[in-house]
Amino acid sequence: MRTIKNNLLNRVSSRISAQFDNRLIGITAALISALGYGSGAIVSKHVITNYTGPVTATAFSLLFGAILVFALFYKDLMFDFRSSPSKAWIPVIFTGISASIGVTFWFLSMVKLPLVMSAPIVGAYPLVSIILAWVFIRRLDRITWKTLSGALLVITGITLISIG
């Protein structure tokens, strides 16, 4: 009886630890990503202010990015092509389409709106992610009030920074 109890406790604690590790890896990766995007935006602003148009800069940037990431990780892609069912690639292709819609329409909106207007609207995209995740992938991503409150605080903060 005692062994069963110990096993159960071990299993529960290792599962909690794994969940916490996953979340920590995820949040750390998100912070590194934000650092990449945030510093990239400084270079991007310099380019579109001094050298070329925003859509041209984005197109070349995506092309260079594709070449770089392909050179680094083409083996993963080959493995996935061999092992994944064809239906798995549908959301992957749509990921590229939606990301490029995001970037292109953001730049186009900046032509018609001041940055203080467009940045808070576009900065609200985590809310769209939360709503879409809740509607379509509830099975994969559980959404809580804490996440929602955190997202609202982040969006309010971004809005203030855009105004300030």
Binding site: R23, I25, G26, V154, G157
Partner: peptide, 16 residues
């Protein structure tokens, strides 16, 4: 690792 909703919220700090 963190899920779409949490990752998007944290990456949203890029303007900061």
């Amino acid at each position: 690792y963190a899920g779409a909703s949490r990752a998007s919220s944290v990456i949203g700090i890029a303007p900061l």
